[in-house]
């Protein structure tokens, strides 16, 4: 295996982040920038969006995991991301079960994303 692989980033509530960090995905790079964001009650949508965009811009991130209820807050930013890498995976949270009808990828796949598909 040539070279170091990419990272898995996570944006989620405390338990989701703790779980994935236990799994070993966490990183604090040389600039002390983490690859995770713990979303608390007082975390602003702007901060979430900025973090998401910064993860998209990082070339060392391969997959972004995001709680679906947080993804709903920044849906426009997620829908605007069309590249395969980094892949964005919407995951359930403790208080919000996963709803496939809200998933950006599935909506796109089922042709509900653009009216052009119905022609």
């Amino acid at each position: 295996m040539a070279g170091r692989g990419k990272l898995i980033a996570v944006i989620g509530d405390e338990d989701t982040c703790t779980g994935f960090l236990l799994g070993g995905i966490g990183e604090l790079n040389k600039n002390r920038k983490p690859n995770f964001l713990v979303v608390e009650k007082d975390t602003s949508i702007t901060e979430i969006e900025e973090t998401f965009k910064s993860f998209l811009a990082r070339s060392d991130i391969g997959i972004i995991l995001i709680n679906q209820f947080i993804a709903e807050m920044i849906r426009h930013a997620i829908d605007a991301h069309m590249q395969s890498i980094p892949a964005v995976l919407e995951i359930p949270s403790k208080e919000h079960p996963y709803d496939a009808s809200k998933d950006s990828i599935l909506r796109r796949a089922k042709g509900m994303f653009s009216a052009e598909d119905f022609r």
Binding site: M1, R4, G5, K6, L7, I8, E14, C17, T18, L21, G23, G24, I25, G26, E27, L28, P34, N35, V38, G62, I63, I85
Partner: peptide
């Protein structure tokens, strides 16, 4: 909780694309 996270964190999992 998040307070227990270490100050130095190294990834133990990498994803290859």
């Amino acid at each position: 909780s998040a307070l227990q996270y270490a100050s130095e964190i190294e990834p133990l999992v990498h994803v290859h694309t």
